[in-house]
Design a protein around this nucleic acid. Structure first.
Lengths: 230, 230
DNA sequence: CATTCCTTCCGTACGACGTACGGATAACCG
DNA sequence: CGGTTATCCGTACGTCGTACGGAAGGAATG
């Protein structure tokens, strides 16, 4: 520690002027843990264990488990890319951008539920919202109509992604998922006299989710187009 | 107990051939408790206490806390009235019906979050879904377009209601809520250079939620109208 | 009437949870 | 060198979901 020895640098730890933990490290570990264990599986103890830290150390950087969920939410939202939509026609730009949102929500199945139950005020969430607002404003919307259109688009994407996750198992197992959906479909068919239209159209066997996502998105985009004309 | 006495009936308890507990009684108590305490406040112990029962007695009627959340969800959905929309023009019918949905989701603030995180297969949920399917089919939609339109409407209503609840306090306190929204609005304004369009339009001070709900709903309905024409 | 069985009720106990509190350690500042 | 401050975290408390097994009493059977 005091005598200078040749090559000693290679055996010493990095000065470690930074503390071992940080919000960023905690957030990264939280996202990873949420991906594997889901929201109920994220506990302060498990998270701390992943970081080789004592449980209570987390509270130096965060004041509650809720804070961690907020941080993880914004970190996951940050994974939604934002480049390459600015020049596009507004419909193509929004389709592309919201498709990216959905992709991230599939990568992090816990995300839609958290997004819809807390105010999204993190920097990355605000940036993603700004992008949609800006695209629609450039398309010609403004005022309360603009806000309404952003809402319709946002809630559709979140709702669709949440529905998808509803039919997914914790450890993504396509066979088990297909089985569950077949069971639900049979259940619906058995009661088809109570709800014939639903039974005929609720297409639980459908596996082209990309396409049906786009179909619903087109409904909302058509609505926006109508507002632009009206 | 054996000798028949005149008027003894008035002093005896009702035969109580029914057990004290039942799914229905449990479900009703669960809804009431959820309204007061929220999803995290519903515990098996508290619920049992409300019913003057032992905690483990609940498990005779239900196999887990999750089951209770499913039952409570369907029971709350049952509060959405369904009469008096059949003769109406399709836009009026859907506006009225979905307005009722939103009203129930405000009465039970925990409802939208539960609806978007579990498959809705309860009898009342299916009946409400059937109604929307039927109205849109009568309007002229069918096949995947019909399914897509139902999704766009449903997710919009759920998303809007969830957003509203996000800004509400546990014990509905208008003053505290307004204060929270003002704080959030100031926070947005301070960062307005990062997201000018959002800051200008995110109308957190707005208190005519009925109107802005309808504006967004009109976007989706316009989209459906466009699909009917196209 | 006696016996068996089944439904309903629930006390106890276990492991996991969020977090309040206060102590340890060590880097920094004077 | 002494004191201050940032970081780390062990312990403990109250709460949670629920597994297990037993009690109580009516119904079914002899």
């Amino acid at each position: 520690m005091s005598v200078a020895r040749p090559s000693a640098i290679w055996f010493a730890d990095e000065p470690e002027r930074k503390p071992r933990l940080s919000r960023e490290r905690i957030t990264r570990a939280a996202v990873a843990l949420l991906d594997v264990e889901g929201v109920n599986g994220l506990s302060m103890r498990r998270l701390a264990a992943r970081l080789d830290a004592g449980t209570m150390s987390l509270y130096e950087y965060v004041s509650s488990r809720e804070d961690i969920l907020d941080l993880a939410t914004d970190a996951a939202i940050a994974e939604i890319e934002t480049d390459g939509v600015d020049g596009l026609p507004w419909r193509a730009a929004l389709s592309r951008q919201l498709g990216r949102s959905r992709r991230v929500m599939r990568r992090h199945p816990w995300l839609p539920a958290l997004m819809s139950t807390r105010p999204l005020l993190g920097p990355h969430a605000l940036a993603r919202a700004e992008l949609v607002y800006a695209l629609l404003q450039q398309a010609g919307l403004d005022g309360p109509r603009l806000t309404a259109a952003v809402g319709a688009l946002t809630y559709y994407v979140q709702g669709y992604a949440a529905m998808e996750n509803t039919w997914r198992s914790r450890r993504h197992d396509p066979a088990a998922e297909a089985q569950l959906r077949r069971r639900a479909q049979r259940y619906l068919d058995r009661r088809a006299d109570q709800h014939p239209t639903l039974a005929r159209h609720a297409d639980l066997g459908n596996d082209d989710m990309d396409h049906s996502f786009q179909l619903g998105l087109d409904v909302v985009l058509d609505g926006i187009e109508a507002q632009l004309r009206g």
